[in-house]
Computed example of a mutant assay.
Amino acid sequence: MTNPFLFFSELLRQPMWIVIWVAILMAANLTSLLFWDEWLAKTIFATFLISASAMLLMFSMVGYQRVLGLAHILWIPLLYFVLREIPLTEGNYKIYLLVLAACNGLSLVFDVRDVWLHFFEKD
């Protein structure tokens, strides 16, 4: 097994746009702490922690591979709840949920592609 904390050194070996994108995703999900009074903010934060833990565990087992996108599987139901909540919110919280939905939604597109390539497009 690989030390899961080596994930970050492997991440830094990726193209700069990936490093920046991961930082944006982390910031977007951790911003949920600013809206802690909202039930969905707690759900976003918990989902982020579970997904990050799953990714580190997967990394320790298989290394830095495209299959790590599977760690974001819980973002699919989370995205549903975020999109459902947006029309019911206003102000900064609404803006936050819109940004989070865009970031996590786009990340899921990347993840689906990466996982597909991992299983069906062997180099």
Rank of each mutant, 00 (worst) to 15 (best):
I24W: 11
I24F: 10
I24A: 15
L25E: 07
A28C: 12
N29Y: 04
L30M: 12
L30S: 06
T31P: 13
S32Q: 07
S32F: 08
S32G: 05
L34R: 15
L34Q: 10
F35P: 10
F35S: 08
A41T: 03
L49D: 15
L49K: 08
L49R: 11
S53F: 11
M55E: 00
L56Y: 05
M58W: 07
F59L: 01
F59S: 00
S60Q: 06
S60M: 07
S60T: 14
M61G: 00
V62F: 05
G63W: 02
G63V: 02
G63I: 03
Y64G: 05
Q65K: 02
R66L: 05
R66A: 06
V67N: 10
G69A: 12
L70V: 08
L70W: 10
L70Y: 14
H72C: 10
I73P: 07
L74G: 06
L74W: 01
W75F: 15
I76D: 05
P77C: 07
P77S: 10
P77T: 10
P77W: 04
Y80D: 11
Y80N: 13
F81T: 05
V82L: 10
V82K: 04
L83I: 01
L83E: 00
L83G: 04
R84W: 09
E85L: 11
I86H: 14
I86P: 09
P87H: 09
P87A: 14
P87F: 15
L88A: 03
L88D: 13
L88N: 15
L88M: 05
L88T: 11
T89E: 12
E90N: 15
E90V: 00
G91W: 15
G91I: 12
N92V: 01
Y93N: 04
Y93K: 12
K94W: 02
K94T: 03
Y96C: 05
L97H: 00
L98Q: 07
L98K: 03
V99G: 11
V99E: 09
V99P: 01
L100E: 11
A101W: 12
C103G: 01
N104D: 04
G105Y: 08
L106Y: 14
S107N: 15
S107Y: 13
S107M: 08
L108D: 03
F110R: 03
D111I: 04
V112I: 06
V112H: 05
V112C: 01
R113L: 03
R113W: 03
D114K: 05
D114E: 10
W116K: 06
L117C: 06
H118V: 04
